[in-house]
Design a binder for these strands. Structure first.
Lengths: 123, 123
DNA sequence: GGAATATTTCGCGTATTATCGAATTTTCGC
DNA sequence: GCGAAAATTCGATAATACGCGAAATATTCC
């Protein structure tokens, strides 16, 4: 991921409706949700939703497919992780333990019990 | 991290100068860099740099400290990881293997060899 | 105390972004 | 084909963000 793509992705997420939308899709899994359902859940007008869906799609963060007359949107998990990786790249110059939080695998265990090791084996 | 904080953080990063600045500080480690050095490396006017430093600071992504007449800025790794965690929260509804890329620990191994396990032990 | 360095504050012009409503397109069932 | 459902396009308005330059503020050194 290059800087330009990262900026587009970050800008796409830096907005109330879109962040809620993206997280809704992330939680919905690969099956995704139709635009109508999204509009209802987020309480946003159809025309506005289209605007925000386009931003996220243009950023590569979501994908679109058709099922009958509905358009189903789902999160692009790969792009999401590319973005996270870009942000932590060269962390402390080497990507290792210079600071405790410099390590993604550790950082994601905050609040949880001992799932760090488990997570490295699942997926 | 709540949604409002996440939006501020994402918005702070969604800009060319600030993204470069943040990544520069992330790579610089806890020691950080003085404003002057940052301005020179990024090729940005002092007044503009202050503007962007304020945005990142207000977002909680960087901290400031003084050393003689210089102001040293450094990345706030905890905030960075809170943000990453917020984005992947409830991934696929449960945070587990519903999609391969749904798992941060796995995702961060893309491109690398077999550092996933090592990373969970370092830090 | 006064000069020099490092950084911030302020004001301005411009450009981008979000919201809304009306009209249009696409797709399905009959 | 026709009517209904689902989503998009378009145009206008309002708000926000960016870059720049001049002036002001802190801090150190002598």
């Amino acid at each position: 991921m290059d800087q330009k793509a990262a900026i587009v992705a970050l800008g796409a997420l830096a907005q109330e409706t879109r962040l809620g939308l993206f997280r809704l899709l992330v939680a919905s899994g690969p099956e995704g949700l139709p635009a109508g359902v999204i509009a209802e859940r987020l309480g946003v007008l159809p025309s506005s939703l289209t605007f925000h869906l386009n931003q996220l799609h243009h950023a590569g963060l979501i994908t679109q497919r058709r099922r009958s007359r509905q358009l189903i949107y789902s999160a692009e998990y790969g792009a999401m992780n590319d973005l996270l990786a870009y942000l932590t790249e060269n962390c402390c110059g080497r990507g290792r333990s210079c600071a405790p939080a410099c390590n993604p695998a550790d950082a994601f265990t905050t609040g949880d019990s001992d799932e760090a090791v488990a997570r490295t084996r699942v997926g």
